[in-house]
Design a protein around this nucleic acid. Structure first.
Length: 421
RNA sequence: GUGGGUGUAGCUCAGUCGGCAGAGCACCAGGUUGUGGCCCUGGGGGUCAUGGGUUCAAGUCCCAUCACUCACCCCA
């Protein structure tokens, strides 16, 4: 038998109801903050990601699903959403009506990594992006929106980590300084960090190895190198968060993996997901729009890892699925014929309905109704047909009442809607 | 890409020294002729991941492959 592809997975019920829940709350919550949904395609020209994420990042170097399209263009299954949203913002000149645009998008991303807990080759993100606003208030608002979103899902134990990565004015000096310092003590660094040193020395700051942590213990932090504008921006973000009682910690080791980030970088972490502790991450990318050929417009955004979020929600609420409101139990051919119509009418009237036409014993059908956690069972047999009254049984209270067959659909609908039965 | 762990019923797993393939849960039926949960009785269900090797005999030992899983790298 043909099995699914490594790193990909089927999301099955009842887990899918958690996904629906998580997504619906996100839509409602983000729209309250003025965000509107955008649905870019999952396939883009490879060049879009090479230019935005950065040629020398791991994503571009080894993790993208890239293949030849028609003509000479290479196509890529998107490894992240931001680049596509920026591309759409530029391509449709969305800035021309109002440069300030706020979008969210929900969908699958693809990265060819080795799968492990909380990491899949097809994974899902909820992204939010804001264009045309450079105010630190927007940074704070986004983080606030994220934290209150998680609160709405009753997720606890999350920590917001905050850092500033500076801008093209001040980052080079820091990078140089750090690079010089680390080059002088390469013998203390692990193999990976020596490699990072010339690719991206900032990454050495968040190496988990003990020896490397010691080596960078007295390293300068970006925050000390921030230029005046970046410093004021970062301070403003913090003071707004303080005023709104959003707890956060400054994490000078927080370095985002994508090249396009500037200034504010943040990550929401949890202890409960093994090695993959980031449940959301994001930051400013004030130069990306222009880099990709658009007008000079600042921007900021974040991505929520839905797969990881769903895991957290499931750990908190193991049982999520509701059984049917009414489960029809027809006994005999005549009953089945009538039930066949009623089940459709009731479902169409907005009642969760189920029926069993297997012809098995009443006991077997009652057991099935019980296992499905049906709230009510509607029994129809020869006796009921003779008396022109179906039996409606409340599975919890075990109460039973007769329901006249000629007004069955309306009567049952009203009773169930009023939760009388 | 690198390293560790695990592959036996739908699920969770036992299987001793190499000697008939097992349990619990789940499923089906009956006990109760038309009433679920608890209890009792019975039943169905297996390419022991795959391929090869050793052996009179392999779920068990050896080799290879594949899959899953955790971790590293990196990220959501």
């Amino acid at each position: 038998m043909i099995q699914l592809v490594r790193g990909f997975r089927d999301i099955l019920p009842p887990e899918t109801s958690v996904w629906q829940y998580v997504e619906s709350i996100a839509k409602e919550h983000f729209e309250n903050f003025g965000f509107r949904e955008m649905r870019p395609p999952v396939l883009e020209q490879a060049a879009l990601f090479q230019r935005s994420i950065g040629e020398h990042t791991d994503i571009v170097e080894k993790e993208m699903y890239t293949f030849a399209g028609s003509k000479d263009t290479m196509l890529t299954l998107r490894p992240e959403a931001t680049a596509s949203v920026v591309r759409a913002y530029i391509q449709h000149k969305l800035y021309s009506v109002d440069p300030i645009c706020k979008f969210y998008t929900i969908g699958p991303m693809f990265r060819k990594e080795r799968p492990q807990k909380g990491r899949y080759r097809q994974f899902h993100q909820i992204n939010a992006e804001v264009f045309g606003v450079d105010s630190p208030y927007m940074d704070a608002q986004l983080i606030f929106m994220l934290m209150t979103y998680f609160a709405r899902l009753s997720i606890t134990g999350l920590r917001a980590h905050l850092n500033s990565l500076g801008c093209p004015e001040c980052r080079p000096a820091f990078r140089q300084n750090l690079s010089d310092m680390l080059s002088a003590r390469t013998e203390k660094l692990c193999e990976d960090c020596v490699r990072r040193l010339d690719k991206n020395p900032l990454r050495v700051l968040d190496c988990k190895k003990e020896s490397c942590r010691e080596a960078v213990a007295d390293a300068p932090s970006m925050i000390d190198f921030l230029c005046g504008d970046c410093k004021r921006h970062f301070a403003a973000v913090q003071s707004v968060l303080d005023r709104m009682d959003v707890p956060f910690e400054i994490d000078t080791g927080l370095v985002r993996g994508l090249d396009y980030y500037t200034r504010t970088a943040f990550e929401i972490q949890t202890e409960e997901l093994g090695a993959q502790n980031a449940v959301a991450g994001g930051g400013r990318y004030d130069n990306l729009v222009e880099m990709l050929g658009g007008p000079s417009q600042p921007a900021i955004g974040f991505a929520v890892g839905v797969d990881r979020l769903v895991e957290l929600v499931e750990a908190k609420f193991p049982a999520f699925d509701a059984g049917p409101d009414v489960f029809f139990v027809p006994m005999g051919d005549a009953a089945m014929e009538m039930v066949a119509q009623w089940v459709c009418r009731l479902a169409d009237a907005g009642i969760r309905t189920e029926a069993d036409f297997s012809g098995r014993s009443l006991k077997a059908l009652m057991r099935r109704a019980d296992r499905m956690e049906a709230k009510n069972v509607l029994i129809v047999g020869d006796k009921e047909i003779a008396e022109n009254e179906a039996v409606l049984r409340n599975m919890k209270t075990r109460d039973q009442v007769g329901v006249p067959m000629d007004r069955l659909v309306d009567t049952v609908r009203e009773k169930v809607a009023r939760e009388e039965f």
